Computed example of a mutant assay.
Amino acid sequence: MKLTYRVEEGTRLGALLWEFGPGWRMISSAMLGGGIGAREWVLNAQVVAGYSRMDPVDHLVSLGPDRGDGVGMMTAASVDRYVRARDGGVEAYATVGLRVPTWAAAPEGHVDPELAPMRVGTVNIVVVAPVAMTDAALVNTVMTVTEAKTQALVETGFAGTGTASDAVCVAVPAEGPQEVFGGPRSEWGARIARAVHTAVRRGAETWRHRHSK
């Protein structure tokens, strides 16, 4: 797996590109390449505040490699300030934007409908684990990632479980003995939880320090 930082031509907007190549399965909530399946790359692209293009999937495709299927996410947060954390063979990467954190079960109308998701920033998370997993275990890892992210935000004093446009991607090898559990008290789920918690907490603390001046 190779991680590179690139800048979109004609702009100052950066993007993080993880190039995995063949032999990987991923689960993601992203607009491009979401769901569960074989994927070869992941793109986390920074867009302008107030992003209003009506073709975000096409935009992501144009920014990604022209080979294989991939996952594409967007954020208004500065992707060059990503945070990486490791735990027992698991790697977690987070880009953290928390201008308008929200509670998942907020009352209807609680969030200003005029605040477009790309205007307020997001918490995008990419996790890489070195073991194959069943579909159910992959779904479980998404729950684990979300719980660990929420724990980190609450611990750093943000009033919310995330933002309205957060995205996640978990990548695992396609071959090998499959883990059947991905919850936070399973062997690999616990490692994922700790890595994500560390990355998001560091990112949230940095974001608060930078925006409190």
Rank of each mutant, 00 (worst) to 15 (best):
T75P: 00
L43N: 01
G97S: 00
P184D: 09
A85I: 02
P117H: 05
W18N: 04
D80R: 11
F181D: 14
E147G: 11
R39H: 11
E205I: 03
L32N: 05
E175S: 13
R191S: 02
D87A: 15
E179M: 08
D80T: 10
H211W: 14
V47E: 00
E155H: 12
R12Y: 05
G176S: 12
A85F: 06
A171D: 00
G72E: 02
V142H: 06
R210S: 15
P184K: 10
G97W: 00
A137S: 11
G189E: 05
G157W: 06
H110T: 06
V154W: 14
A193Q: 11
K149P: 10
G162C: 08
V127K: 14
A105Q: 13
S78Q: 15
D80M: 14
W24N: 08
A193D: 06
P65F: 10
R99V: 09
I36W: 01
D166Q: 09
R185I: 07
I27L: 11
A159L: 13
A195N: 00
A129R: 03
E91N: 07
H59E: 15
V47I: 00
L60M: 02
Y82G: 03
S186C: 06
L32C: 01
R84T: 14
G189I: 06
A136W: 13
T146W: 11
A104C: 09
T146G: 13
G37A: 01
R67Q: 08
D69L: 12
M1I: 11
V61S: 11
G35Q: 06
G14K: 00
A94G: 12
G70V: 03
V139A: 12
A15G: 01
L63N: 00
V71C: 03
L98P: 04
C169G: 05
T102P: 12
T156I: 00
T146A: 15
R84L: 12
N44E: 07
V71F: 08
E187L: 10
M1W: 13
V145D: 02
E187Q: 09
M54E: 10
R208C: 00
R99C: 06
A190E: 11
G89T: 05
V200E: 05
A167L: 02
V90L: 00
W207M: 01
V79Q: 01
A164Y: 08
A199T: 03
M73F: 09
F158Y: 11
E175M: 09
G50L: 04
V100N: 10
A77P: 08
A195C: 02
D55P: 04
R191Y: 03
R67K: 12
T163F: 03
E155A: 15
E175W: 05
V128S: 11
K213P: 14
V128L: 12
